[in-house]
Amino acid sequence: MDFKDYYATLGVERAATEDDVRKAYRRLARKYHPDVSKEADAEARMRDLNEAYDVLRDKEKRAAYDSLADRVARGGDPQGDFQPPPGWDQGFEFHRGPGAGPADHADFSDFFSSVFGAGQRRGATRHNARVRGEDHHAAIEITLEDALGGTEREISLQSVEPDAEGRFARRTRTLQVKIPPGVHPGQYIRLAGQGMPGSGGAAAGDLYLEVRIAPHPRYRIEGRDLYMNLPVTPTEAALGARVQVPTPSGGVVEVSVPAKARGGMKLRLKDRGFPGKPPGHLYLLLEIALPPADSDAAQAAYRQLAQAVPFNPRSHLGV
């Protein structure tokens, strides 16, 4: 595991004030926000920024992190195989106040959970009150086929939990997650009881997984609708034809291309998009594909067509 330099991530000095940290975060968050950023790794950068900011804006966590960084500096370069020294964080507890917002830690790095997990867990269990554990949030990316047909995925979660002697240790849990057919992007899968454990005997929080769908080579998603380019020949477009089309659920259907069809024309296959109320549709965008003129016969046929059908596609340009 790499030691993470959160100050470098935010581009601030160790002596930075809270205000400096906040300003640096906001400036970089605008730069790497996945909705506006042109950088290829925007999403990963944003995750790193959020993690660094989670630590550096919090006085307790920042003090603990600084003391760990000092120990690492005294012990020389950890050379990428960093492990926090046992018991280094004994004096620390990390509290999440009511304004702390969603616990996004499930998406944070191994470094974060190994460094801050135990302290956070201690902070949470110190209450004697019955308090339900926090919900956790993460994202899961699946293929379009799996979203439509349902699937089962294995996910690994890092958590820090007390053992029989009350010592906190990092634990990896592997969950088999059933993803039911018909989930769409942006929907949340809720895993009951897989968030933070509760305190005072209260129930654990839940884990919410946001569904994301990996880009598909053939289909594109817009809301509940799917779009696909459907190449047709000039003959099929001009005269109309019945052509075979693969559907996202794995089948093949026959579709009528109307006569006098044009490139860009949209054909709708009703209810063949994402299921739901109402279900989405599958749209086929016609794309005219020219037969290659790579033989004498093909070239002769093109010339013959030009003679038989004098046609100026630029007449509307006045030329």
């Binding site: 339900r132 926090e134 993803i179 009951a192």
Partner: peptide, 27 residues
């Protein structure tokens, strides 16, 4: 490492969450 099977629901019209659950999810 141990394997656990868990109940999953998709938050949707047929399995919505209530205001308390929404608040809890958001801290």
């Amino acid at each position: 490492m141990h394997h656990v099977s868990v109940t999953t629901t998709v938050v949707s019209a047929s399995a919505p969450i209530d205001a308390g659950e929404l608040a809890h999810a958001c801290g």
